[in-house]
């Protein structure tokens, strides 16, 4: 088991390193540098800024300095906003995005599993058909489009829920729902098919022959086996939620990290863009790693 963990850590570190190196060299492969014509700077000021940011040094030296800074958690200063550092931006805005993401994940997992259970228990009935239809239609709907749809109907047309900013619980509803939709239907589909598979196994019959009620059999024998499979699914879903948060935060004007990322793109704030790309990349890879590990630990067959 330990060997497996070490292997996975090695892969994680290699991937991280590859991403860090690629982003660095890609940015430096661009003609010019961040301080050329787009910013309204005079030539002397631009030269001074280059010196200050160490951009006049040979590339390899810059790379080493970059890695050193990264190791200390320094991702550089924002180029548009005086006095703001990337790590500072992350520290202040990420908690909001994290909250949004976790709320969406929670909704997705509970709703998805519940739908899966209902679909299994009522096989052949209208519930199952309805859920199947819902999941088929839902899985193709990008969270960005759903976000705007919900904003239009619940906000503009029917004026039921708030559609911007962050603070009250009501304000979290539409954004979380937009993000949670695809994960919910994915989980529902996947969980249901696994549950049906599991229920056809002989050990379910044996459990019933021991006198266990249908409910007990479902909860103690079927669910643990099916839930284990859902765990693998969660890694990619988190990636989906994270990426979706960029646009959802933009649509609902939520002051999270995603908003910063999107605006840094239009602002040409390269340090922020690069820093946040790295942050998100590392976050995603790390969470996939964690879920892998979690599943490995929980499944008796693997260890």
């Amino acid at each position: 088991m330990l060997i497996h963990i070490l292997k996975k850590i090695a892969i994680l570190i290699s991937s991280l390193w590859i991403v860090i190196t690629i982003t660095f060299f890609l940015v430096h492969a661009l003609p010019g540098d961040p301080f050329t014509p787009e910013l309204p700077l005079s030539e002397e000021v631009a030269a001074a800024m280059r010196r200050q940011h160490g951009l006049d040094q040979p590339v390899l030296v810059q790379y080493i300095n970059y890695l050193k800074n990264l190791a200390q958690g320094e991702l550089g200063p924002s180029m548009r906003y005086e006095g703001q550092t990337v790590q500072g931006i992350i520290a202040s805005s990420f908690p909001i995005s994290a909250l949004l993401g976790m709320q969406a994940l929670l909704i997705a997992v509970t709703a998805g599993i519940s739908l899966g259970i209902v679909g299994t228990l009522r096989r052949g009935g209208w519930q199952e058909k309805g859920i199947l239809l819902l999941t088929t239609l839902g899985i193709s709907l990008p969270s960005a489009i759903l976000a705007i749809l919900l904003q239009y109907f619940f906000g503009f047309k029917w004026e039921l829920l708030p559609i911007a900013c962050w603070g009250s619980f009501a304000q979290t509803l539409l954004p979380s729902l937009s993000l949670a939709a695809i994960p919910t239907v994915s989980i529902a589909r996947f969980f249901q098919s696994r549950l049906v598979e599991v229920l056809q196994q002989d050990y379910i019959l044996i459990a019933r022959s021991k006198g266990l009620s249908e409910m007990r059999t479902l909860i103690f024998h079927a669910m643990p086996n099916a839930l284990l499979a859902v765990l693998t699914y969660l890694g990619p879903l988190i990636a989906h939620i994270l990426m979706g948060s960029f646009i959802v935060e933009k649509v609902y004007a939520i002051p999270g990290l995603g908003q910063w990322f999107v605006s840094s793109i239009s602002n040409n704030d390269y340090t922020v863009t690069m820093g946040l790309t790295l942050f998100y990349g590392a976050l995603l890879m790390f969470s996939t790693f964690l879920f892998d590990l979690l599943q490995y630990w929980l499944d008796p067959r693997r260890s």
Binding site: I18, M274, M285, F289
Partner: peptide, 14 residues
């Protein structure tokens, strides 16, 4: 295996 862990959409965006 290593490349597979790199987030696709993020890299494409970048």
């Amino acid at each position: 295996e290593i490349l597979a862990t790199v987030p696709n959409l993020l890299l494409a965006t970048f």
